[in-house]
Write a protein that binds this DNA or RNA. Structure first.
Lengths: 178, 178
DNA sequence: GGAGCCATGTAATGGGTTACATGATTAG
DNA sequence: CTAATCATGTAACCCATTACATGGCTCC
């Protein structure tokens, strides 16, 4: 049982889902492709942590809807009590910054602009989710609120940093607008 | 040539370093173990992107000090001009939050406390680096300033979120101090 | 005397991406 | 008519961690 398997169980503890849905819900917080998820679900099924039901659809492909079992819930509770691994962040931009003296400063400026757009998009997505929930009568679960807020905080600060970094470049380098 | 190889070249474009030093300088921004770095350096060496010199030390093990070649610098410039991969963040805590309704809320509270300590430590480390540079006559390179500030922003916001999250838990759950 | 740092390397295993494979429906 | 969404799966490859291996020095 690896971390992603527990992540799948964790989502299933809220509601039954197809593998495809699990992928979509997981991706904003834990990048994973379908090719990784489907085999893990089959394994969880075989080991009795989940069960599945085949749902036949018209106009869409059939799907397997997975549900967590009591054995799955027990495994989750045991996992929750253990300390979490340290978060892993890998950002190629930081590596590129290390050699900004090499080559063209306009390249770095371009990279920062792209990052600003990216962070703004993600930030607005998180913000939109929070707003959408606020407008519904059904409030989101506490978990979802905490997660969306985490994403919002993160992308806000990344955006703020990237904008600040652009200014730093402008202060030190001959201005070549881009 | 993978991303980590370019990261090593990027560091070497600032100064010659041993594999061990490269590992230490890289880790705050791109986690990598020595077992991954040493073989890559050997490969870069073989392909002519770097050269190395054996430095014999008394009281310490001998080391190999690597320097970037002109071929290496060219490769770096080409890499800089290409768009950066999207950042990857994997935080097991987010997966655990998804099932905070399952099991003991005190477990979650504990996880948040650990995260607060972790983020505060990292934040203070970044802060310390910035302060230390400010006190020196030799100012840090622009790159290092940007990177330290990025880390500072990131851990500040993670810390702020974790403290806010703890308050949210207190508002909704019977208070069981921990 | 034990833990931790410095310093390098290899081997085995596990985690993750890319590519291969299929196919109907819908929106632009 | 092309791209995207829904939906599932396998195989090959690359990336990353853990474990194995060695050994002197320093600090407590």
């Amino acid at each position: 049982m690896n971390t992603l398997s527990y992540g799948l169980l964790s989502l299933l503890s809220n509601a039954s889902n197809s593998g495809y849905d699990l992928m979509l819900k997981l991706q904003p917080f834990w990048p994973a492709k379908h090719s990784q998820i489907y085999p893990l679900l089959a394994q969880l099924d075989q080991d009795g942590y989940v069960v599945h039901e085949l749902v036949v659809q018209k106009d869409k492909p059939d799907k397997k809807v997975y549900s967590i079992t009591e054995k799955g819930r027990e495994a989750l509770r045991a996992w929750l009590a253990k300390p979490a691994d340290e978060p892993v962040h890998r950002d190629e931009l930081t590596l590129k910054l290390y050699c900004l003296h090499e080559g063209d400063i306009a390249d770095i400026r371009k990279l920062l602009h792209v990052r600003i757009e990216y962070s703004r998009d993600r930030m607005l997505w998180m913000h939109g989710k929070i707003e959408a929930y606020a407008r519904q009568e059904q409030p989101p679960t506490l978990a979802v609120q905490l997660l969306m807020q985490k994403g919002l905080f993160h992308f806000q600060s990344d955006l703020a940093w990237a904008e600040w970094a652009l200014l730093q470049l402008a202060d030190r380098q001959p201005k070549q607008d881009n």
